[in-house]
Design a protein around this nucleic acid. Structure first.
Lengths: 252, 252
DNA sequence: GAGTGGTCTAGACCACGAG
DNA sequence: TCGTGGTCTAGACCACTCG
């Protein structure tokens, strides 16, 4: 059992999050099985209950765990407890970690004015770019574009990358958290080349997901994913917000 | 200044949430202005800092507030701090509360098997149905369908309803919370009649938002909204989850 | 240096579920 | 009755921002 390092660079609740994610990914805790109780996690990892709850709040918000008052906390299945007509096997549920990624493009550039503003920095700052095609069982399902301040994740392009969405890599390895207020989706018509890569009819609907991440409150990372419709459950935070009338809003 | 009732039916952090929402809606705190500090809110409302943070966590997750470490917590603008080319006036930003609603259909029915399962109850239970067209400045922007156990919100159809999304009404008046793991979006092609109501070309992309709510961990409410694309910022919780191959997934 | 949000502790009482 | 998650308290120390 991995331990939590109180003097580590990452806060305890993020260390515990990674530990729990790894346990779930390893298959030790299949969908539907109970996670150890909050008080048990306190004892095991030597942290207070509020810290454990902070971690569980994150994972519940991400849709990976579900709480049932009086009973316990359980690993969610992809269909989030809804009736499943076909009742497919649970491990067909693929979290991000079940995806494969093929690199389309990567490199480091000096930020232009627009990109610098997006990342909350000044022009000329070094920025890592990374574009990947996401595959599920060899079938393309999404296109991911990432832009990250080189200073925030110096070894991002050099080191081997786990088969995870970019946002997850940045959280686990560099402590970059993705502010829910900065993660939005929209519905768009897939354009020619992108539709082709995803094997869709041009003009058919797709989900465009935008996320921006920060460390210690300071921005520095943005990731977009163009998702094939009906292939993903995308969980939303809360009320939709109206935009002003004519949005110039396709940073893509 | 409204006070918090420690013996009220709603927990303190939800009471404080309603208070802060009303202050923001009233215009006392325009977009960009600072909210009182966490410690100041503690003093003002006689609650501990963890309780204040619980409330602020909610509102930040809903995209209404933004924190800046070392500086304070601020009312968010619709464009969440992104560069706004047109720089429209901030009060054009419309949260849910800026929307108007026109009732399309309402009534109470006995749940069939399928609806009962959706709401986590048995067949024959009384269920309120409510369909509304959402308008922004008189222009249709979304269609909302709600299904709620009558026992959960007995007076929902009888009482006058504030101009808020159904989920917000249920939270404020009945303490129904919407589990983020049960709120999902998808991109769909708008079909004929719905597209017509929303003034869209048939087949153009739209966002389908599904949310399910519970009280004390017991389900009992579901709301869907079909949103015009590019008219809303929909905030997402975290990683998208892959669906099994062929989803039978249009509860609409 | 004073104020802010970010993290963390070590308790407490409650309602609920199960045996 | 006992264990669970839900709520809440009254503190603490840190890094950061600003004057």
């Amino acid at each position: 059992m991995r331990a939590i390092d109180p003097r580590g660079p990452l806060p305890k609740y993020l260390q515990l999050r990674t530990i729990l994610l790894d346990v779930i990914d390893s298959g030790e805790l299949p969908a539907g099985s109970p996670v150890p109780s909050e008080r048990e996690l306190c004892r095991r990892y030597g942290v207070s209950r509020m810290t454990v709850r902070h971690t569980l709040d994150l994972l519940v918000g991400e849709g990976l765990l579900r709480r049932r008052p009086g009973k316990g906390t359980f690993v969610a299945s992809a269909e989030t407890g809804r009736a499943r007509p076909g009742s497919l096997s649970d491990d067909l549920r693929a979290r991000g970690s079940r995806l494969g990624f093929v690199e389309l493009e990567s490199g480091t550039v000096d930020a232009g004015e627009r990109l610098a503003r997006t990342l909350g920095t000044g022009p000329g700052t070094a920025v890592h770019l990374l574009s990947r095609l996401a595959l599920a069982d060899g079938e393309p399902v999404a296109i991911e574009h990432g832009r990250v301040l080189a200073s925030l994740a110096p070894t991002l392009l050099a080191a081997p990358r786990p088969e995870l969405p970019l946002a997850e890599i940045l959280t686990r390895a560099y402590g970059v958290v993705f502010d829910p207020a900065d993660q939005t989706v929209d519905a768009v018509a897939a354009t020619g080349p992108e539709a082709a890569r995803l094997g869709m009819e041009p003009g058919s609907p797709a989900l465009l997901l935008r996320r921006s991440g920060s460390r210690r409150g300071v921005r520095g990372a943005e990731a977009t994913m163009l998702l094939r419709a009906s292939r993903f459950l995308v969980r939303v935070a809360d009320n939709p917000t109206m935009l002003p009338a004519s949005p110039a809003h396709r940073p893509h």
